[in-house]
Design a protein around this nucleic acid. Sequence first.
DNA 1: CTGTTAGCGCCTTCAT
DNA 2: ATGAAGGCGCTAACAG
Lengths: 344, 344
Amino acid sequence: MVKKANNIKELAEKLKLSPTTVSRVLNGKSKTFRISSVTSQKVFDGAREYNYSPNRIARGLKLEKTETLGLIIPDIANPYFGSIAKTIEVEAHKRGYSIILGDSLEEVSTEAELLKLLTGRKADGIIIAPAGKKSRHIVEAEQQGIPLVVIDRFLPDTNLPYITTNNYAGALMAMEHLIEMGHRNIACIQGINGISANTDRVQGYCDALRKKGIAINDHYILGNDFGELNGYNQTRKILKMHHPPTAIFALSNLISLGILRALKEEGLKVPDDMSLVSFDEQPYSPFLACPMTTVEQPRNEIGKEAFELLLQIINDKNQENIISKKLMPKLIIRDSVKKFSISN
Amino acid sequence: MVKKANNIKELAEKLKLSPTTVSRVLNGKSKTFRISSVTSQKVFDGAREYNYSPNRIARGLKLEKTETLGLIIPDIANPYFGSIAKTIEVEAHKRGYSIILGDSLEEVSTEAELLKLLTGRKADGIIIAPAGKKSRHIVEAEQQGIPLVVIDRFLPDTNLPYITTNNYAGALMAMEHLIEMGHRNIACIQGINGISANTDRVQGYCDALRKKGIAINDHYILGNDFGELNGYNQTRKILKMHHPPTAIFALSNLISLGILRALKEEGLKVPDDMSLVSFDEQPYSPFLACPMTTVEQPRNEIGKEAFELLLQIINDKNQENIISKKLMPKLIIRDSVKKFSISN
DNA sequence: CTGTTAGCGCCTTCAT
DNA sequence: ATGAAGGCGCTAACAG
């Protein structure tokens, strides 16, 4: 059995030093306290020899900071959120922080639980992609004093700092492309009605049409969920319309998966029978039956900026230059939009 | 400003009770200590009124358990791991555990760091999908006494408990399908050579051929990484062969993405120009240019079983019925395998 | 340059 | 039926 020191006191005894000295050396304060290099070395060697690593729970209790960050995500299995989580974890790890991950299952109640849990666990800060429109529990958490950054969407009627995609601009790009290609009757299958990411995209959808003098058909804006099933159901509805659109603008990757399923069931092809542009670029987008034109959100950037922003809130006393951001997405044009030479 | 009790002592004072009593009530021990229901109610109401939630760091220090589990994953952005992580988080949350997530970036060194970090953070247990073949750091962690379960692959030469897919059976199914469809020249693009998930799949590949009396061509087994680039590079190599195979068996979802890219660059179609079966079912598998035949791993089951197993190790004193499992995958047949009526 | 002491918030033993 | 005191492992204030 390897020799083992379970705590700083044990190690100090074996080394015939005080816990204080050991603590100082291990925390890189040898210089500050002018600890002799002999002693320092002894501590380092001892720590290795006795396989000692400080108890970060005790440390957290004493220091009142845990170097732990909470991350609350509506669905970690969705690769969009998975990539963001990855970036955040990697950045955090570089800076000595650990991530406590919570999956809210797109439920506000679970989200609230998670928030409370993280408070109890004394996370130094929280990054959250809110599940719904309700923001009270989030605002309350922040008012309890825990640094907090919102991602993916922002919460209107609050001052919570956020990092999101510029969803309005993304929708505008997508729609302008569709219109340029000659489409006039374009449906929009949306996500949860009322959350900013959705509202902004729908706004972009409407404004793009307006700019080109195309009337907005209310029946063409449908759906209420970012999931696959919603994409499927709404597409079935669309296909039964008297005047079906020539194109669909899908407001999430999951929605477009549902669209593809419905289309396939009916033996319909993209783009010949239906054109399609979708939010959220995915690794498989180029390899679909019809390579898909997508709006790519800057996932890495979102993760990085959110982490940096959170760190700034945690560390800076003057909270004046806390600055929320909407990051620009990118339109990736492939083959899923059919070209009409004449207006239809 | 809302009234607030920051710790149990403050709350006890406001309630004119001792911290002991408050603690007992809040931990559901009213019965055991025969605390009057009046007092109990006062504590519950007070906790809510003063928005008190116990400091779990202090609790962890005292109790020497944190109700925290570590989860180390090679790439959380990969939806295969994302789903597993989701299941584990959700199950853990139900049972009062939180998950500290670490992404090892497929690097053994990062993995070792993460392991040490989790030990320092006094996680009650760890679930790990190892990044490589090296297992010493993992075994060491376990020998320090931290309960540990390995997923996705197992580590030979160790007794570490594991939950994995039955990779051998999965490969066998895939190959039998290919062979039944008339293929004789089948390449296998593998992942990291030497880790069990890969070895078992290659073994299945070989055994299936052997059973049917088909000679194994060593040149047909190529590659050394589960990533997209490996799939791409090996496919390019395959296409330049004098006697190229008629089918490729891809040992991961990322590898098949690379295969699709290489094929597409050459203007080759699945399955007419090349048949394909891939490990790892994905939501988009049905919607690819050619709907893909895949081996689906039981991701939810892996997550659930791994969590339950870990819990058992944490709680049970007698570690005798700790039982590792290889869970059966499922072959999902679609259109990516061309039928040959005669042997080729 | 090094050590002693006190206390972070909690739970548990012992006391009443 | 309730409380007082001690200690989990650590670090910072105070000594020297």
